Simulated scan of single mutants.
Amino acid sequence: MTPSNDFLDTVFHHARTANAFTNAPVAPALLRQAYDIAKMGPTSMNTQPARYVFLTTKEAKARLIPALSPGNVDKALQAPVIAIVATDTRFYEFMSIVFPHNPNATALFEGNAALASGTASRNGTLGSAYFIVAARALGLDCGPMSGFDMARVNEEFFPDGRWLANYLINLGYGDKSKLFSRSPRLTFEQATVVL
């Protein structure tokens, strides 16, 4: 089944990184809906290590602002929601739930720190990419950001060290008048090899 052109336009072709937002609020139910769609995307061994902290109040955002690069402060404050995308370093504690047909799955990761760390990093990022696609499909605009002090975010929001910050996503309804021109993308020939 081929996706409709409208869907592809919404999620990819016409979707843009939002740098400014309107003041329209984002309903908490919409965040839940985006998560419930994104969690269905495949991750290796169904590990699902992506975690999210949604900052929706001025007080919550104020805790993040000192960790942001100066160029990201205004756009973050303007966004109705800032998502801290994190990775659960002990995702494997849920393996009996998410991968029940392999009773040894937890032990596989629990006894191998390098495997657990690599799996968490790759699949946490992969899972959160599904979240961006789901949010766009539901009509939200997204502004992913990596300009922040990760250690400060971890200290402020994840002091126990179980979850670790990966990147941030500003969420809301973008102000189309403040979009930048789309930057070029690499061609198929530049980015791929077919063997």
Score class of each variant (00 low, 15 high):
Ala79Ser: 08
Ser177Gly: 10
Ala24Thr: 15
Pro144Leu: 00
Phe94Trp: 12
Arg122Cys: 08
Gly111Thr: 08
Asn166Gln: 11
Lys58Val: 05
Ser96Thr: 11
Leu138Ile: 05
Phe180Leu: 04
Ile169Asp: 09
Ala18Leu: 10
Leu140Ile: 05
Asn154Val: 10
Ser44Val: 15
Ala165Leu: 05
Leu138Trp: 06
Thr47Gly: 04
Leu140Thr: 03
Gly174Val: 02
Asn72Ile: 09
Pro3Leu: 15
Asp149Ser: 10
Arg136Ala: 06
Thr106Phe: 14
Ser183Val: 10
Gly147Met: 10
Pro70Tyr: 00
Pro25Ala: 10
Gln190Pro: 01
Ala67Leu: 09
Arg182Asn: 06
Thr187Val: 07
Glu156Asn: 12
Tyr173Val: 01
Met40Asp: 05
Gln33Thr: 10
Ala20Phe: 05
Ile132Asn: 09
Gly118Phe: 07
Asn46Met: 08
Phe188Met: 11
Gly41Glu: 06
Leu115Gly: 07
Leu168Ala: 05
Asp149Pro: 07
Ala137Phe: 06
Tyr167Val: 01
Gly118Ala: 05
Pro144Gly: 00
Leu108Cys: 11
Lys178Leu: 13
Gly111Pro: 04
Ser181Leu: 14
Arg90Pro: 03
Leu64Ala: 03
Arg90Cys: 03
Leu140Asp: 02
Thr2Tyr: 14
Ser128Trp: 07
Leu8Thr: 03
Leu8Tyr: 05
Ala135Leu: 02
Asp149Leu: 08
Pro66Tyr: 05
Ser121Asn: 14
Leu126Gly: 07
Ala107Val: 10
Ile132Tyr: 08
Gly127Pro: 08
Phe7Gln: 12
Met1Ala: 14
Ser117Glu: 15
Gly172Thr: 03
Tyr52Gly: 07
Ala38Ser: 15
Leu138Glu: 05
Asn46Leu: 07
Pro103Leu: 01
Asn104Ser: 07
Ser146Val: 09
Phe157Trp: 11
Phe7Thr: 12
Leu195Met: 01
Asn166Asp: 14
Pro100Cys: 02
Lys61Gln: 14
Ser96Pro: 11
